[in-house]
Nucleic acid binder design. Sequence first.
DNA 1: AAGATCGTCAACCGCCATTAA
DNA 2: ATTAATGGCGGTTGACGATCT
Length: 313
Amino acid sequence: MSSSRKSSTNSSEDDAKQLRRGPWTLEEDSILIHYIALHGEGLWNLLAKRAGLKRTGKSCRLRWLNYLKPDIKRGNLTLQEQFLILELHSKWGNRWSKIAQHLPGRTDNEIKNYWRTRVQKQARYLKIDANSTAFRNVIRCLWMPRLLQKMEGSSTSSSIMTSENSPVLRSLDLTSQHQALMTVQKVPGQGPGNLSEAVQCLDQKEQNSDSCVSSSESMNNISKISQFAEYQTSPFRMFDNNDYNMLAMDSYYVDNFNNSSCYNMEIINQASTSALGDFAKPVGDCHMAENNWVNDGFADGLWSVGELWELRS
DNA sequence: AAGATCGTCAACCGCCATTAA
DNA sequence: ATTAATGGCGGTTGACGATCT
C-alpha cells in the first residue's frame, strides 16, 4: 500500500471517527441555520465541512429539510391533512415525497411515520395486508367518509375536501359512494347524519333500484351494525353469546361490499375471514387485537367510538 | 414504585438516479 | 463511456416518553 493511499485512508478514517451521529444539539442546529441563512442550502457535503459541522452532508440535509426549515409545520396533522394522505396514498402508494408535496409544511418523513404508526396499525389488527385491496376499501368506505364527517362537523371551512372534489370518493361505485356520502351528509334540521341514517338511505336507494339485496337483508345490515353499537360499550359483549362468528364491523364491510360491483369479493372475504378468524377465537386468545382495535383505532382522532356509531339515539 | 411494554418520531441506512468531471 | 460525487427516496432503527401491569 502506497504511503499516499495509506495517508488518504487514515484521513477518511479520522473523518469517520470525528463524525457525530445521533440527535442534533442546539448548537449544531444554530450553526446549520446560520450557515444556510448566509450561503443558502445545497452542496451538503461542502456545507457540512465549511460550517464546521461534524456531520455528513446527508445528515445536514435531513436535519434541515425535516426539522429546521422555517416553513415546517409542527403539531398534529389536521383532519384535512389526514384525509389528503389517505387519498393520495390510495393513488400513489408509498410515494411519500410526492404526497408531501401536496401537504405544505409537512415532510415525507412525517407522513411516512403517520402512515406506519396510525394507518398500518389498523391493518395489522385486522390481519389485512396494508397494501391489499381489502384494506384500501376499508379506508375508502369507512375511514375517509368518517374523516369527511368529522371535518364537516368540526369546521365550516373544510371546503378543500368534499366528496365532489375527491377523486377517490368519486371513484367509489355508486353504492359505496352513496354510503360514504350518506355517512357525512347532514340531514337538514337534524344535525350531522349518522351511520344508521346512512344505511337507511342506502336501503332506500337499493329498494328503488333493481338491487339484488332484499330489504330484509338490508335490515339485517342495520341489525348487525346495531350489534356493533353494543360493542362500543363493551368490547367483549360481542362474544358474550358465544357468537364468535359475528363481528358487526366485519359484517358491515362484507355485506356492503357484497352489494358492490367494483370489489374483488374473494379478496375481501379472505380478508374478513382472516380478521374474523382471529376475533372468532375465545376472548383470551385475542385480547390484544380487540383491545387495540377499539382503544387505538378509535382513540387517535379518526375513530371516535361514541361519535362514529351514533346508533342508539 | 418499578419494570415491562407500547407508540412516536428523529435519524440513519442503503439503494437508485442524476450530474459533473 | 466511465466513474465518482451528490441528492433524493423509502425502509428501518433506536431513543425516549407515556402507559400499563
